[in-house]
């Protein structure tokens, strides 16, 4: 089962910025144990562009599709046998990233 694991940061109460070495070590472990499918940290939401081409013209708008205090700071894709395994890893990830984590299954 694949899970999208989102790292959620909070603009009004951001997590610490010195987590990269710990996250790299955690990634190594995820790879070694066969859970890792993909991972990546994201640039600031200001760098996002939303594209809407449902109408007559393509509309580009600057910024994220929804302005909010909380935003997506990075993602993982994990392969795990069930939610218990994913939640256990997510609990570790939350400590390591010093941020909230959302675990959502792929269809």
């Amino acid at each position: 089962m694949r899970y999208l694991v989102s790292v959620i940061d909070d603009k009004s109460d951001p997590g610490s910025t010195d987590r990269q070495p710990a996250i790299s070590a955690f990634n190594e472990r995820l790879i070694a144990e066969g859970y890792w499918v993909f991972s990546g940290g994201l640039a600031d939401t200001d760098a996002a562009t939303v594209v809407d081409n449902r109408g007559e013209q393509t509309v580009f708008s600057d910024g994220p599709f929804v302005e909010s205090k909380e935003y997506l700071a990075g993602v993982w894709v994990w392969e795990a046998p069930d939610l218990d395994v994913a939640l256990k890893l997510a609990a570790e990830a939350s400590k390591i990233c010093d941020r909230k984590i959302e675990v959502r299954p792929f269809q």
């Binding site: 089962m1 046998p81 069930d82 939610l83 218990d84 675990v103 959502r104 299954p105 269809q107």
Partner: peptide, 10 residues
């Protein structure tokens, strides 16, 4: 079902 919550004793 969707998140695959396991059917087992922890």
């Amino acid at each position: 079902k969707a998140a695959r919550i396991p059917y087992r004793v922890p």
